[in-house]
């Protein structure tokens, strides 16, 4: 009787996990498949097999410059988000001051607040301030969106770090900065890396901010894809999407490897 029940549980688990996997992965494979379709419109299942769409987009100046812009912006806003987010997380996790939870709520609010609204508000502030460089405006907008992810990931890992380690370092003669650099940072490296990956991905494929802050000269990839979709819906769009998916995946793998190495170093057998 119990054997049957166990078997039923195993089956149920397998089916359930399989279902979730399909739900998550299927769109990626559909996109990948469509990008090789030898047709003038997006089709699934793909008709024929060709790589000409890849040849086309990888020589397309607009796509390449949009990709480069997105890359620079994502990189830059990740750096900015780390520079703002790590000190903020330190204050939230270690500080003892009145209004700490309220401040935490405010700092994390961009996670909940509709980005379309935040983007509109930001655009009005920036234009009132006379800032016209779309690249700078986008960098500010993306940093705003990305920083809460860093704050959250770093705060979580800071709470796991034994505060006594920092106290021990300070009694041994390290000032606050050295203590952070030599003791705290190695401990929270996985959290920092996770926050950085989130920040990068959030910036890289952010559309709502770009809708308000980009102009015709400087359009990041998501916005460019949107425009392309409205004009021609040919397999170059799934091809571009596939390129983005691969970039994202490799970025995540690189960081995972870095974090994994850190972990191995700290728990060396």
């Amino acid at each position: 009787m119990s054997l049957n029940l166990d078997r039923f549980r195993q089956w149920f688990l397998a089916v359930f996990v399989g279902g979730v996997l399909i739900f998550v992965m299927a769109p990626l494979f559909v996109t990948l498949a469509m990008s090789f379709s030898d047709s003038y419109f997006v089709a699934f299942p793909p008709q024929g097999l060709t790589i000409r769409w890849y040849q086309q987009i990888l020589t397309d100046r607009y796509f390449l410059s949009a990709l480069a812009l997105s890359g620079y912006l994502a990189f830059g806003s990740t750096i900015c988000a780390l520079l703002i987010g790590i000190p903020a997380a330190m204050a939230l996790a270690r500080g003892r001051f009145p209004g700490r939870t309220i401040l935490q709520g405010i700092i994390l609010s961009p996670l909940i607040f509709p980005e379309l609204v935040a983007g509109l508000a930001l655009m009005q502030v920036l234009s009132a301030a006379g800032m016209v460089d779309a690249r700078l405006n986008l960098l500010i907008g993306y940093t705003l969106v990305a920083a809460p992810y860093v704050v959250r990931a770093v705060t979580t890992s800071l709470l796991l770090v034994d505060a006594n380690l920092e106290d021990a370092a300070r009694t041994l003669g390290a000032n606050r900065f050295v203590t952070f650099w030599k003791v705290t940072l190695p401990q929270i490296a996985p959290g920092v890396a996770a926050g950085a990956v989130f920040a990068f991905m959030i910036s890289f494929d952010n559309l709502p901010m770009a809708l308000w802050l980009a102009d015709s000269r400087y359009s990041p990839v998501p916005l460019m894809l949107m425009r392309q979709l409205n004009s021609v819906f040919d397999p170059s769009i799934p091809a571009m999407s596939t390129v983005i998916i691969i970039l994202a995946l490799s970025g995540a793998l690189v960081v995972e490897r870095l974090v994994g190495m850190r972990r191995a170093a700290s728990l060396q057998p």
Binding site: D162, N164, L165, D167, A168, A169, R170, T171, L172, G173, A174, N175, V183, P186, Q187, A265, S266, L267
Partner: peptide, 20 residues
């Protein structure tokens, strides 16, 4: 005098050794 200039040795209940 700030802690890092006091020249005190301190032991903690959970040892507080730097794990890395």
């Amino acid at each position: 005098v700030p802690v890092h200039k006091r020249n005190v040795g301190m032991l903690f209940q959970n040892y507080a050794l730097f794990p890395q």
